[in-house]
């Protein structure tokens, strides 16, 4: 039976690390509890080994870092060639519905050829190739405004004067 007895760190710290890994896997939509445990245990073991070398490090941080490395190397084994492996891998995992269609193969040693092909063929092209061209306004013979009129409007003076003139003209009669 595969066991986990870390030599350094407290039980509380390793429990916290376990919960964080579980949370992350759930965020990845890996819902099967057994599969979660299968993934978590070796990750925790690797984290514990690193913690034994430097007990000042936090088990949660080590465990999640270890999981990220496992994810990266698994995506690389699935032949996803990208500089941003973690990003490409996660997008490919989402697009292939891996959590529902291939739950038992995620982070497993063996990757079925068809699954690997599906992962590789995922393409998320947000925009086609650019074909730059220009679109420049042509000069239009737009008349310049009479700046004095808007300025008078802005101050409200012209309106007041106009209203006053109309009223005066009327009541004077």
């Amino acid at each position: 039976m595969n066991t986990f007895f870390p030599h350094t760190g407290t039980e509380e710290e390793w429990n916290a690390a376990y919960y964080r890994l579980e949370d992350y896997l759930r965020a990845l939509r890996v819902v099967n509890k057994v599969r979660q445990s299968q993934i978590i245990l070796p990750v925790l073991q690797a984290a514990a080994a690193r913690h034994a070398q430097d007990p000042t490090l936090n088990p949660t941080a080590l465990a999640v870092q270890e999981l990220f490395e496992v994810l990266d190397s698994w995506f690389a084994r699935a032949a996803l060639a990208s500089e941003t492996l973690a990003t490409t891998g996660r997008v490919a995992f989402l697009l292939t519905d891996s959590a529902e269609k291939w739950p038992e193969y995620f982070l497993a040693e063996e990757i079925p050829a068809e699954y690997a092909r599906e992962l590789r063929e995922c393409e998320t092209l947000a925009g086609p190739d650019l074909e730059m061209s220009s679109m420049v306004p042509r000069p239009l013979d737009i008349p310049a405004p009479d700046v004095s009129l808007p300025a008078a409007w802005k101050g409200g003076r012209l309106m007041l004067v106009s209203v006053a003139a109309v009223c005066f003209g009327f009541f004077k009669r």
Binding site: E123, L125, A126, G127, P128, E131, S133, S134
Partner: peptide, 29 residues
């Protein structure tokens, strides 16, 4: 994929007409 594209503009220059013009400059041709 390859038929539906999404483009987010960083600077919203000239509102909607600027948005369309930006599309034209990138892909209009």
């Amino acid at each position: 994929f390859g038929r539906i594209f999404y483009r987010k503009r960083r600077v919203n220059l000239h509102n909607k007409s600027g948005n369309i013009a930006d599309f034209c400059r990138r892909w209009g041709a």
